[in-house]
């Protein structure tokens, strides 16, 4: 396993006596797309702002490529490219002039590099127009361009798809895929849009009320080998379900099975003379998992 690119150690943030982030610890590996999921107000944006040094850390530490964000700010931030919410640019400058502003702030960014980045995000045609004439999607692309200028190891995107239309969302997704595949970057994305996260991320952390509730690989969420199936049957004698985990629900039973076992189960029912009205897999989406985890967290809180 590669060394962690981003490391959070017991990070806590207190604002006006209120714990916004409570003892958050996790690591992000090289080349992975890491999703940061949580309901509104869970502390996603706060965590991201602490990572990029926009907010102070009350206790704990954040390391970017081994550099402490607070103590070695400049060295740590050299490795970060970021967009925090909608990328706000200087509207009275052109796209290119905006990029020049950021290019001047880091040593050794050549004109070719700027052109290359502009090409990558597909803004070549409009780069010399004023930003105030840009659509939201184009601003988002320009935002992506500014974050790529210094070849960072980590991209941090806070709600990158907010307010974008489906085509824009897809575009961002494609760009991120390209970045991780071609340049080996790690990407941290926060969002409250589950389906988005499911498509983009390798690993997802769910946070709620400033606490880490769960952290898992996306495939674990979606592609469990065992799955629940709903059987609508008029079953009187439950004995037939011996040794099989099941749950009685309204109108029928939910039974956890592997896919190959489903025909056998149906056969078993028909042989026993039980009428089957409906059989369907209960797809366990990220959303189910998310709701499960977050509402569960609320009950215990």
């Amino acid at each position: 396993m590669a060394s962690p690119v981003v490391q959070l150690n017991h990070v806590t943030k207190v604002i006006k006596g209120k714990k916004i982030i409570d003892d958050l610890s996790f690591t992000i590996e090289e080349g992975e797309v890491f999703g940061f999921l949580g309901p509104n107000g869970a502390g996603k944006t706060t965590t991201i702002r602490m990572m990029v040094g926009l907010m102070g850390i009350t206790s704990g530490e954040i390391l970017i490529c081994g550099k402490n964000v607070e103590k070695e700010f400049e060295a740590a931030l050299m490795n970060i490219g970021g967009i925090v919410e909608n990328p706000e640019m200087y509207k009275f400058l052109t796209g290119y002039q905006n990029l020049m502003q950021y290019a001047r702030m880091i040593k050794g960014i050549s004109k070719q590099k700027i052109d290359e980045v502009v090409e990558f995000v597909g803004l070549k045609e409009r780069i010399h127009d004023k930003v105030k004439t840009y659509s939201l999607g184009m601003r988002q692309r320009l935002g992506l361009a500014q974050s790529l200028l210094h070849d960072p190891k980590v991209m941090i995107l806070d709600e990158p798809t907010n307010g974008l239309d489906p085509a824009g969302i897809r575009e961002i997704r494609d760009h991120l895929k390209k970045l991780t595949k071609e340049k080996g970057m790690s990407v941290i994305v926060s969002s409250h849009l589950l389906s988005e996260m499911e498509m983009m991320c390798d690993r997802i952390a769910i946070i709620q009320n400033g606490k880490l509730v769960d952290i898992q690989k996306v495939h674990d969420y979606v592609n469990d080998t065992k799955q629940k199936y709903f059987f609508e049957v008029n079953l009187e004698n439950v004995g037939i379900l011996d040794n099989i985990p099941y749950e009685k629900v309204d109108k029928g039973y939910e039974i956890e099975l592997e896919k190959e076992e489903v025909p056998k189960m149906i056969q078993k029912f028909t042989e026993a003379g039980i009428s089957i009205y409906e059989v369907k897999p209960i797809a366990k989406t990220l959303e189910d998992r998310f709701m499960e985890v977050t509402t569960g967290g609320e009950k215990h809180a």
Binding site: L54, E88, M105
Partner: peptide, 14 residues
């Protein structure tokens, strides 16, 4: 006011 402060302050500059 412009919101540009965010992108300005996440440069590797104190």
């Amino acid at each position: 006011g412009w919101g540009t402060i965010k992108l300005l302050l996440i440069r590797p500059i104190k």
